[in-house]
Write a protein that binds this DNA or RNA. Sequence first.
DNA 1: CTGTTAGCGCATTCAC
DNA 2: GTGAATGCGCTAACAG
Lengths: 352, 352
Amino acid sequence: MAEAVGVSHAAVSYAYNRPDKLSQQQRSRILAVAAELGYPGPNPTGRSLRTGKVGALGLILTDSLPYAFEDPGVALLMRGIAEVGELAQVALTLLPAPLEAVPAAASLDALLRGVVDGFMVYAMPDRHPVLDSVLRRRLPVVTIDGPALEGHSRVGIDDRGAAREAARHLLALGHRDVAVLVSRLSPDGRSGPASHSRIAHARDRVMKARVKGYRDAFAEAGVGVLPVVEAGGFSAAQSRAGAEMLLDTRSVTAVLAATDVLALALLDAAAGRGLRVPEDLAVIGFDDLPAAAVAGLTTVRQPMTQKGQEAARLLLNTINGTPGTHLVTLPTELVVRGSTGEPTTGSTASPH
Amino acid sequence: MAEAVGVSHAAVSYAYNRPDKLSQQQRSRILAVAAELGYPGPNPTGRSLRTGKVGALGLILTDSLPYAFEDPGVALLMRGIAEVGELAQVALTLLPAPLEAVPAAASLDALLRGVVDGFMVYAMPDRHPVLDSVLRRRLPVVTIDGPALEGHSRVGIDDRGAAREAARHLLALGHRDVAVLVSRLSPDGRSGPASHSRIAHARDRVMKARVKGYRDAFAEAGVGVLPVVEAGGFSAAQSRAGAEMLLDTRSVTAVLAATDVLALALLDAAAGRGLRVPEDLAVIGFDDLPAAAVAGLTTVRQPMTQKGQEAARLLLNTINGTPGTHLVTLPTELVVRGSTGEPTTGSTASPH
DNA sequence: CTGTTAGCGCATTCAC
DNA sequence: GTGAATGCGCTAACAG
């Protein structure tokens, strides 16, 4: 503390944080000297150590960060988080969540080192190693669409119920030959038709819940078969490949796409084959991304931005000492646009 | 340090950070006790205070954070940053940059408190108060498309040259009645036709440079008039309003849109009026966002992701002690698609 | 190999 | 009002 130039130590601290505890004159003199000496003001790290607060919320996304920015849904989520973060004057720290393949010790470290006041965990598959690391930090945690963590708040939607509603819509229109397209059921890179067992052991809770919802509706209606195809991941390339694969292997009048990204890829793939939507192929998505409206996609709307807001608010509250854990379930809504209609008598979407 | 349970203080630290400096047995014993006691491992804040490093890169965006997530270009930039950051095992911290209107003292504080090892500043207008705060921190800084800061590295493109090339393309096609649409010249919310003086005093360097480039080409060609219309901001809504305004007030055969977001809005607005592109209206954008390819937009490609990568690398190097400041200028390229063509003899795009 | 010592920069007591 | 002392949790350097 080089500010021995006149006054003593704590006075400097007061000058910055407690203007009331110092004489006006003293304060401005200190600030002037500081400016002259190029003293940058209280060091945030020192302050954090002392106060125990950092002023940053950590956000952990599945898979690698770089990919996350490809996902329009993530952007909406972050927007919501940023809105309340900005109001509360806290920063948003994106933590690099290591891929599962990486040896735990090496890169989970980075996460453990993250200087934040709490974590938000988005769409993490069950039993992902990162969860242990997060829990070990003993900081406030809020999961979003993630696993329910003992003693921590969670925000999400009723994925199963919403998916059920989407499937009912298709059934009501008369579709019986329907397939499901999901991004992935477990983070192991596998793609292609998914067996019952694979679905039963799915680690991606959101995808699993949506598949369950679709099946609920078909079971209700007494329509037995509902094949599930897995794209293998969330990226645009994987989504497109999954769409092509489904169209290659299945002869259906409609597809239940578990995300809008998949549905949009399906629309492209269908157009590439000269299939008319919805006459030859009806498509229903999930999420209601901005692009869905443009494409005229029938889909399930979920309030992604609000999800982010809620999560950030919940986390902030916990950080600030409000006790209690909350489970917030946000509403969804089926949005019917032009990509769904009654099936034509002969299915023209045939294999190859 | 409650770990007086057997060994002494620093040994615990070694157990976590320097396995080689401890006997295998000692180490595992410490770790076992830690697990039992629920000791979360070394506290990141304490470590940071001691080592002087945090493990996080700060990113400061113009205007408010929430809006930034609406901008597809920002997503690409962050993607690049995240790629490098993930490799280097550092987190990315998004700092809330206060709006200019807000009284400086209040919210610049949050920024000063940001616990990071260095800053990346994106597209900051000249003389924005946030710059002072950043500089005051005396941490490494890299600006992206931002003002050139004395002694700090910078990455950008040749906006003026690239814009010149875009304008030349239009001139070569035979267009003479052309208008420029920019998002904003200064962050004061003004929209509408921009006077020469307003352009000359523009604080948004990127927009200003592009306008200059457009003008260069028209001056070269001896075509005098090149009206500039300002949308007032970057948002989708403002872009659309700006596009409508331009179409309302100007009778032109082509528009030089200073960003793809504006160009895309223009395409929509034109479609809404039944104008054919490029026959009735030629449009050229800037950035080459993914959406530009889909829309068949002629535009200037700039490597946004690479911008992020370079900036992050530069910052990381500086943080790690590599001396020197660098000015990196990335290449651009004119991408001709379907939105530009020769003007038809009679301009059909008439006011109202 | 192991334990001890000494700050990193700060905010908060408490005494004056 | 102001100044001096204390400890937040850690790691680097040194001494055993």
